[in-house]
């Protein structure tokens, strides 16, 4: 017989070891702060760069290259830079991503800063049960929007093979294609895609196309196992692509090409 799922119990009284006992002050040897510090530095740099690009970075286009920050080209001559129309979607996708949640909860919120260390928080902990953090549950919608943006990035990368009707293959083309590959591995290796493809199925034998879904789930799982790596690679590749095209556009470097 199933027991009442809402049954509550009284936890045993905590005695002897006070929670903040001096005896449990951790005697760390490893520099546990190193990872949070690195994450804060890199993510902050990206945020600053993103803001600068969105508000003050101008329009980064030089035939046949279009910066990923400005793709798709929406309202190119509007009152604000075109990046502002595009950036919120991939940013929302990254902000609600399960990997980045780990990264910023640990590094920015220090909740916790590392495993088995104390926390500075004084307020009662609510996790993702309250506003605004419960909005992380909207990750799959952000994923749908990120996939749309990704389609445009692939279109741009393919279009970069064509300059005035002639085949063109420059270093910038290769960078744009690599950027799209990293972004695709990151987007399609996401936990929400993994769930929708096959993770939500209990018995593959009893659903239509179950075995195919299982195979798809296994493939996505392989990508998902390296989700953090793809997250960082794609973050760097987006910035690298933008910087490269910006440098070519301003004439600081020349694009080597065939």
């Amino acid at each position: 017989m199933a027991q009442d799922a809402t049954t509550k119990w009284t936890p045993p009284e905590r005695t002897g070891l006070a929670k903040e006992s001096a005896f449990h002050r951790l005697r760390r040897r490893a520099p546990w702060w190193l990872l949070p510090l690195t994450v804060v530095t890199v993510l902050s740099a990206f945020i600053v760069y993103g803001i600068w690009t969105a508000f003050f970075g101008g329009k980064v286009y030089t035939a046949p290259y279009l910066s990923p920050f400005y793709s798709p080209q929406i309202w190119w001559n509007g009152p604000v830079t075109p990046a502002l129309w595009v950036l919120p979607f991939p940013l929302l996708f990254r902000a609600t991503c399960y990997y980045y949640r780990k990264a910023y909860y640990r590094s920015f919120f220090w909740d916790p800063p590392a495993c088995a260390v104390g926390e500075a928080r004084k307020k009662p902990y609510k996790g993702e049960t309250r506003f605004p953090l419960f909005l992380s549950n909207l990750h799959r919608y952000a994923m749908y929007l990120a996939v749309i943006v990704l389609i445009f990035l692939w279109i741009d990368a393919i279009a970069a093979f064509d300059l005035n009707g002639h085949f063109y293959l420059g270093l910038g083309t290769a960078i744009m294609v690599i950027n799209c590959i990293f972004l695709s591995a990151y987007t399609f290796g996401c936990h929400s895609v993994r769930h929708l493809i096959g993770g939500c199925v209990d018995c593959y034998s009893k659903v239509r196309g179950g075995v195919k879904r299982y195979e798809g789930w296994k493939f996505i799982t392989k990508l998902n196992e390296r989700h953090a790596m793809w997250a960082w690679l794609s973050l760097f590749s987006v910035v690298a692509t933008d910087v490269y095209i910006r440098l070519v556009m301003t004439g600081i470097i020349t694009d080597p090409h065939f």
Binding site: A5, T7, R101, K102, Y105, D111, P112, G127, E128, T129
Partner: peptide, 14 residues
């Protein structure tokens, strides 16, 4: 969601 309180988990992977 309710008794289990999965919303409290913030995916820190410890």
């Amino acid at each position: 969601r309710t008794a289990g309180g999965i919303g409290f988990c913030n995916i820190t992977k410890c």
